[in-house]
Design a protein around this nucleic acid. Structure first.
Length: 111
DNA sequence: ATGATGACGTGCG
DNA sequence: GCGCACGCCATCA
């Protein structure tokens, strides 16, 4: 890694790594924790761009709609769904996930 | 620096 | 619930 990743990117990766097994987080949530509540797209971009990076639980990142972002039928979709289910997350045939039960709760104690 | 892209989010019909 | 349009951000050509 010669290029210096932006702090935003580092923050994003950091938040993702904090997600415990069996839980999922949304792009918007990660983006918000990273400092940019509107950087959901950037998060997504970083993920698909850094998907080659190991140790990054990218599979735990889903859309705010509670569904796998990958288009159904794609390799990425199948792979992510399989990994999530392997972690104990119930994923519908269409990649539907019950965020109310599996959404990761950041222990962000502030104030 | 400009234009285009992407595993998104929200609002509206 | 679904599809479309606009907005937002970081990275690539």
């Amino acid at each position: 890694m010669k290029k210096t990743p932006s702090e935003f990117s580092l923050s994003v990766f950091r938040q993702i790594k904090r997600v415990r097994r069996g839980k999922v987080a949304t792009y918007g949530q990660i983006a918000r924790l990273a400092g940019n509540h509107r950087g959901a797209r950037a998060v997504a971009w970083l993920l698909h761009s850094s998907s080659r990076v190991r140790g990054l639980p990218w599979q735990r990142i889903v859309s705010a709609q509670g569904k796998i972002s990958f288009p159904w039928g794609t390799d990425g979709f199948t792979r992510q769904r399989r990994r999530l289910m392997s972690e104990g997350v119930e994923v519908g045939e269409r990649g539907e996930i019950n965020l109310a039960a599996y959404l990761w709760k950041p222990s962000r104690k502030k104030t």
